[in-house]
Design a protein around this nucleic acid. Structure first.
Length: 307
RNA sequence: GGGCAGAUACUCAAGUGGCCAACGAGGGCAGACUGUAAAUCUGCUAGCUUACGCUUUCGGAGGUUCGAAUCCUUCUCUGCCCA
């Protein structure tokens, strides 16, 4: 569990991961303060200025307690993805390492953390026209059409890819039609070298307790004005960042498809589902040390011992 | 008091003699994850078992039948209607 650090690298990144509502933000700040450094968020939604309440973004006070990065840095119409995050995050780490030997990365988006630590393989962009066309064809002809097209144009993906997953199939087909090559041929399957050590922490929490915290936090979000925040974003609902728990359910309420109480219950449920997916992601990585976030002093002590 | 309808697995809900451990949906659990990732997708979901398979289920108790969630009797409960 406790991987030894490579003494060649003087710098260390501390990852604070875990399910949503498990207490990552507070622990990340405590660590950042102790090591006199900043917090790089690893959250795919908190970077958007327009989404604050529903993303459980760190409060203004919390952001002042330690410098935060990748918070409020983008707008909902910006194109943010794991590759963008990798580049952005590496620059932040470089900056933080100028003043401290430690940087804290705090967030629950497993893919972003992976991109930061191991890199995303370089690959060419796709033709937006083809992308739109593939999406349109899929909507009219369905999953079977995607499967047939992939068998024809990208046999590699057809044999190894997720042939039941329309989102991944659309990406693969768009890619092969744009570049003439299989998306999978660009997957190196090996991490890019990084010149810092990594300590991976994930917050351990009883499932029952976690779910209670989630339910409670959703109620607090509603009290804080999530409904109004969502209403302001309603016209932009088709944007990718707005396909987010806490917003899409309220959009359905605005559509008149359900009651507000029903929507709120669904937000709680979908947040629980999301938390479970996060845990699945982090559990499969054996490098994570599962820690008790409430014991801040104990965590700091354990981390210090490993540096 | 009388009449009618109903009681199925965590929930809703199909099934009206054998192909039923029981369609489907929801929920839950587990998993996958390289440019949408708070997204998208997969599997399992009575118990034991890696599996084959075995055991106990369809409100309770009896009965008919080679065989019942399905038919009969009765009891309990729920809803509606007439008093």
């Amino acid at each position: 569990m406790t991987t030894s650090l490579n003494p060649i690298f003087p710098k260390t990144v501390i990852i604070v991961a875990g399910a949503t509502a498990s207490g990552k933000t507070a622990l990340g700040i405590a660590l950042a303060q102790f090591f006199n450094t900043g917090v790089l968020s690893a959250d795919s939604r908190q970077c958007y200025r327009e989404m604050t309440i529903g993303t459980a973004k760190p409060t203004v006070e919390e952001q002042q307690a330690a410098p935060h990065y990748f918070i409020n840095t983008h707008a909902v119409h910006d194109d943010v993805n794991a590759a963008v995050y990798e580049q952005y995050g590496l620059q932040v780490l470089e900056k933080l390492f100028q003043q401290s030997d430690v940087a804290v990365v705090c967030g629950g988006t497993g893919l972003y953390i992976k991109a930061l630590l191991e890199g995303i393989d370089e690959m060419p962009g796709v033709d937006e026209t083809i992308k739109a066309d593939v999406a349109a064809q899929y909507h009219t002809h369905g999953k079977e059409w995607l499967q047939q097209q992939l068998i024809q144009h990208d046999p590699l993906f057809a044999s190894r890819g997720e042939m039941e997953n329309p989102a991944r199939m659309q990406r693969a087909l768009t890619f092969v039609l744009s570049t003439g090559q299989s998306l999978l041929s660009y997957h190196a399957g090996k991490p890019k070298p990084r010149s810092f050590n990594v300590i991976k922490l994930a917050i351990e929490m009883d499932r029952e307790v976690l779910y209670q915290r989630i339910n409670h936090r959703v109620d607090l979000m509603m009290q804080a004005g999530l409904l109004e925040e969502a209403r302001a974003l309603y016209p932009q609902r088709s944007l990718k960042p707005l396909q987010t728990v806490g917003y899409s359910e309220l959009f359905e309420y605005f559509d008149g498809d359900c009651t507000l109480d029903f929507a709120v219950d669904k937000i709680k449920q979908h947040t629980r589902n999301y938390a479970k997916r996060q845990l699945t992601w982090f559990r499969k990585d054996p490098e994570y040390s599962w820690i008790n976030a409430a014991d801040t002093a104990g965590v700091i002590k354990a981390v210090t011992a490993r540096l």
